[in-house]
Design a protein around this nucleic acid. Structure first.
Lengths: 230, 230
DNA sequence: ATAAAAACATGACGCAGATCATAAAAATAT
DNA sequence: ATATTTTTATGATCTGCGTCATGTTTTTAT
């Protein structure tokens, strides 16, 4: 399968921030024209369809970015700290948020006025080029997930998510899940019951260990195989 | 349903080209550092995973952009003339094509050296800003389709595609489909047989008329309802 | 014109996974 | 501590849709 090297992950950590490409002066502008906002666990940071007056930079915390559905949402990404959010609203003729964002943990977000951000893009091409890179990394992963959700069966989809959480977010084979089973179901586009059943399957097969919120991936090669076979 | 105004379309026509933002000199650079290539119907324009040495501009024709799968591909977009393709390869650290592209009709593609394109982005912020807009329009539609394919049932998904083809590509309620039923199945992530059955359902219900490759959308309000209800 | 190959069509069947019902366990609130 | 809500868990049942088999029509090649 030629496409299996598609990144099916829901998250990313840009090794480089884009802000280091700004001049002193520009950075100062961002500082003065932005505000820091604290959110508690479970709070909504932005609401799909509302006016996008700012770009968001996640200074600290963990959030989910999702499309609102009825009855279930579709989680696009899990985003950890030091990432830009809401870049997709940089689109003339659509000044609304494409998605909602809410927090899993206590979170600090820097809200940057979108006009200021646009100004920086227009005056600093290095910065704009970096933003293009960030957008394209995001799109690349989006396609990978697109493929995962439409072409793979349940076990493969859940394996994808577990591997991603381990590799990209928690960077450990053992971690405490801040997500509920229902969140996992919205990441994998399956029912909550199926998530529970498949986690049990994985546990019975010795592929993972799980009790409550604590997860250990015991057999990464097998998880990879399940992910690849779909 | 708050998300029903998500654009579930597979195509777009940017009202503005990005090239009009270049200086005379820059435009000249593009002209001298690019080549025009003709493709026959059914030919492959670029191959997923191969090295992306150029950005493609579709001067004339109609193509599909798709992820290769086994046994079925997933069509990301149907792209008509006057559109940029392969922008997602503008991503440092990934110089390969994320997807394959092949033609539905005779097609003329301008291949622009990717280094030249990058240079333009870095020296002309207006141009870069326009490219960001194009990428974000694309992502916006990608999310809409993501939602359609993961949350809607077959009838809703096919209604989405028919509406899109009518509105965005052919700009008429009657058109000749260059796509096969199998293409429709790869657009909607369902089996070819299901496409055929559902088209028949729509025809029996008087929602569309279809014979061979010729399609008429007879009852747009009902198609819209089917699309919205999923 | 004729043959070969795609594409289209339709019914029968099976199953992956959703839904429903019920209950235990955890988390949260009072 | 105790009550209430949320989350997790498990079995029973149902169904949307894929798969398979078979045949027809259309397109393409010679």
């Amino acid at each position: 399968m030629p496409y299996t090297d598609l990144d099916t992950c829901v998250s990313f950590v840009y090794e480089l921030s884009c802000f280091d490409l700004l001049t002193e002066e520009e950075r100062e502008l961002v500082n003065t024209q932005s505000v820091l906002v604290n959110y508690k666990k479970g709070e909504m940071v932005c609401k799909q369809g509302s006016f996008a007056s700012h770009i968001m930079y996640l200074e600290k915390g963990l959030v989910k970015v999702y499309l609102e559905g009825n009855p279930k949402d579709l989680i696009l990404t899990i985003t950890p700290q030091k990432n830009l959010m809401g870049l997709q609203s940089l689109y003339e003729g659509n000044n609304t948020f494409l998605y909602s964002i809410s927090t899993y943990t206590e979170t600090v977000v820097r809200l940057i006025d979108i006009q200021i951000f646009k100004q920086l893009l227009k005056q600093n091409p290095q910065f704009a080029y970096r933003v293009i890179n960030i957008l394209n990394e995001s799109t690349s992963q989006s396609y990978g997930r697109f493929f995962s959700l439409t072409q793979k069966q349940l076990h493969g989809r859940l394996a994808d998510i577990l591997l991603c959480l381990s590799r990209k977010i928690f960077k450990s084979e053992t971690f405490d899940l801040p997500l509920t089973r229902s969140d996992l179901s919205e990441l994998t586009s399956m029912s909550t019951e199926s998530v529970i059943r498949i986690l049990k399957d994985f546990k019975d097969d010795g592929i993972i260990d799980i009790s409550n919120k604590s997860i250990s991936l015991l057999d990464l090669p097998r998880l990879d195989t399940i992910s690849k076979k779909g």
